[in-house]
Nucleic acid binder design. Structure first.
Lengths: 143, 143
DNA sequence: ATTTATGCAAACATTTTGCAAGTGG
DNA sequence: CCACTTGCAAAATGTTTGCATAAAT
């Protein structure tokens, strides 16, 4: 099991190559997602974007999220009981541990779990397209 | 890894003991959840309940879901990109594989994955309260 | 009888969409 | 220029809630 930092990729180039126009709102939103280490929801992204360009609207945030998701630049998470939260796609796939008391999200990765998932799917006659593994926990007091 | 059938429990007795009134809508809804092997959403539960008592409302379905969830009689699932779907609590915990083409849900269980989850959480300094593991896949054609 | 639950409609929260105006390549 | 994108307001979804009435114990 490993935890790891994330390093930004150049998705602007990537998108341009796919024929996507790089507009001011899109550049701002993409920048926000690249810089952040957290998992903001649409309103939070709007809030941060508004500081750079007050005219950006919530619909543009959502439309941009859909666009970026389709091009693999971000991932959408629907953690239990709340709005979708977005995360810039880093180098490595990872899963999440959500602190139920603070809402903090900790990223982790386990190759062994992934391998078991593949085995299970194969036994059931399926190919996995993607998965979602979320641990909901509370910080251990002393020990 | 195992897949398993579910056997109904007597939650009516359980609820009564907790001081919950067993009303006609509640009995009907609980019955529907006990009988079914699938994972219906609120509208689908309403649809099935309406066949037995046309006066049942959607709010009662939601209120009953919340009640049953609080008493451990059912579990609420928020699969990607859709409404909550509900499932009667059986004997054993299990996870889900969702067929992305049909929406079918297949239940499975892996003690090894659960064990790995505990190890991961422990390393990160957390106690797991609950988790969510969903595999999204497509039926394998030939092989 | 008293407390709790219900149905209805309205409120809420999140996300999507139609359309006229604006902008990027 | 011309197609694509935006902001705005309105619609669409999924879920919760206030309130007067109905039902359970």
């Amino acid at each position: 099991m490993t935890t790891e930092a994330k390093q930004p990729l150049d998705f602007e180039r990537e998108l341009r190559r796919a024929g996507i126009r790089i507009t001011r709102p899109r550049r701002i939103i993409l920048g926000i997602l690249q810089e952040t280490g957290d998992h903001p929801d649409a309103y939070e992204i709007l809030r941060r974007a508004s500081a750079l360009d007050a005219s950006i609207s919530l619909s543009t945030v959502y439309r941009t999220m859909k666009l970026l998701e389709e091009h693999g630049a971000i991932q959408r998470h629907a953690f239990a009981g709340g709005p979708s939260r977005f995360e810039h796609t880093g180098e490595e796939h990872h899963d999440h541990l959500i602190d139920v008391e603070t809402g903090d999200v900790i990223e982790f990765r386990s190759a062994r779990i992934e391998k078991l998932q593949d085995e299970i799917a194969r036994e059931l006659g399926y190919d996995i397209l993607h998965h979602r593994l979320e641990l909901y926990g509370r910080k251990r007091r002393k020990n």
